[in-house]
Design a protein around this nucleic acid. Sequence first.
RNA 1: GCUGCUAUCGUCUAGUGGUUAGGACAUCAGGUUUUCAUCCUGGCAACCGGGGUUCGAUUCCCCGUAGCAGUACCA
Length: 476
Amino acid sequence: MTIKTRFAPSPTGYLHIGGLRTALYNYLFTKKNKGKFILRIEDTDRTRYVKDADKQLVNTIKTFGLNFDKGPIYQSKRLKIYKKYADLLVKEKKAYYCFCTKERLDDLRESQEKNKQVPKYDRRCLNLSDEEIAKKLKEKVPYVIRMKLPDNEIITFNDLVYGEVKINTNDLDDQVLIKSDGFPTYHLAVVVDDHDMDITHVIRGEEWLPSTPNHILLYKMFNWSVPNFAHLPLLLNQDRSKLSKRQGDVAAEDFIKKGYLPQALINYVAFLGWNPKTEKEIYSMSELINDFEIPKINKAGAVFDINKLNWINATYIRNIVENKKIHQKDYKYILNFIKNILPNTNRAEDILQIFSPRLNSIIELKELSKFIFELPNYDKNLLIFKKSNIDLTKNGLNVAIQILNQIEDKNWDQENLNSVLNNALKEKNLAPGDVFWPIRVALSGLEKSPSPTEILYLLRKTESLKRINTAIEKLK
RNA sequence: GCUGCUAUCGUCUAGUGGUUAGGACAUCAGGUUUUCAUCCUGGCAACCGGGGUUCGAUUCCCCGUAGCAGUACCA
C-alpha cells in the first residue's frame, strides 16, 4: 500500500516553527517510504482567515524544500462534501441539529464550571421531535450539527508515537460538525478529507491527541477504515509552555529573514523530538530522510533553544564558505542575502569570507561590518596595547604608514599585507602589539574586530592610510 | 475541576536489570593569537519522590508529585 500523508495548516498567518516540524516529519516519513505528500489548507474558520496567508504558507514550505506531490487543496472549496456527510449522519441519527444559542452555551458552561462539573453540551437538542426540528428549520433558526457520542464507551487506539491511548466517551463532548455558517469544523473536515484523500498516516501535533477518539468515532460512523495516527510532542518555550509568539520568534519566515539558512533550521527542528540514535549532529535533508523512523520520535515536549540553532546555523555558514565550490548554490544564497542587507557595498564576498567564523546568523553581518563603512568614534587610549605605551604605539603606526604606502594597489591582498608587515616587524625589531594592535584599532575603532590584515584588505589602501593617519593625529 | 500525555545534566538527547550514565549546545578554565571569532584541550553538570519486584533498579510495576495539553460554532 502506498503511504500517503498530508500537512494541513490553517491560513491564519505565518508558518509556525512547530508547523514546520510537523510538515518536515510528514515529508521525511513520506519520502522515506516513497509515498505521496499532500498539502491541504484548512481554511474553515472565516473569522481567523488572513488574506494571502495560504500563498505565504506555500512559499515558505517550498523554501524549506518540503515539496508536496499534490495540493494545495482548500477545504473552503469542499463545503458541499462536508454538508453531504453531515446530513448523512443526521439521517442515521448519529448526529443531530442543535439550535442552542451561543449565549445559552456560555451560560451552561459557566454554571457547570461553577458546580465543578465537566463542561460539556447537555444535549438539550438531542431529543427535539421531528416536528420541532422541521419548524425551527423552516423559521430559519440558526443551527449547528453535532455528533452524537455513544455513552460510556472506551475508545482505544494505538498511536504510533504514544502507544495505546484509552479515553472514555463520557469525558468527551458532542462536537459540532457543521457550524451555523455552514462551514465544517476541523473535526468533520479532517476526517472527511483524510478519508477522501486516502491518507494512510495522520502525523500531527500532540494537541490533537485528546480529540482523536472523536475522529475515530466519526470514521466508524461512516464505516471508513481508520488511518494510522502519529502525534508529535509539542515544541515548548523556555518556561515549558507550548511554543508561542509571546516569547520570541515562532514564525519560520522570521528566522529566514534573520539569516538562518533553511537547511540549518530543518536540521535543528528535525532533532526536536526525534533522534537518529547516532552522535552525528549535522544532517542534510537526504540523510534525514534516510534515517527517519517514527519509532525514534520522543514522547516528551522539547524546548526550542536558540543557542543550539545558532550553533547549527554557524556551522552551516562556515562549512558553506569554506567549501564554496561544493556548496555553490548555498554560497550564492548567502551572498544574495548580504547584498540585500548591505546594499552599498560591492565587497560582499570579501566581507563574508572574513566574517563567516563569527556569524550565528547572516543578519549579524550588518552590525559586525558597520565600522567598514563608517569609522566609529573611539578613545585614543584604545590604540595603545596593554603591554605597550604611547611612544611605541606612535612609532608602530608611523612604521606602518611607511611600509603600507610602498605596497602597490595590485599587491594589496591579505597574504602580501601579512608578510610585508611581519617582515617589517622583524627588521625593525618591533613587538606585534605595537604594530598590529594599533593598526587594528585605527582601522576599526573597536576593541574587538577581525585581524588588521583582514581589515586593511577590506578597506583598501587609501581608506586604510587615512584612518591610520587619523589615529596618529589623535595621539599627538 | 475533569480527561489525557510526559518525566536522564540549564537545553536537545543516547543508554542500561550490574556502565566511571555517553554525546551535542550553553557555561567555565587553559592553549593558539596583536584583539575578537574560529580551532584545539580539559572541567562543572542529570536518572522527580516514595513504595514494591529483584541478589541488585535510573531501567520493570504501583502510588504520588510536577509540568504540559485538551476541555470553543479555533484549528
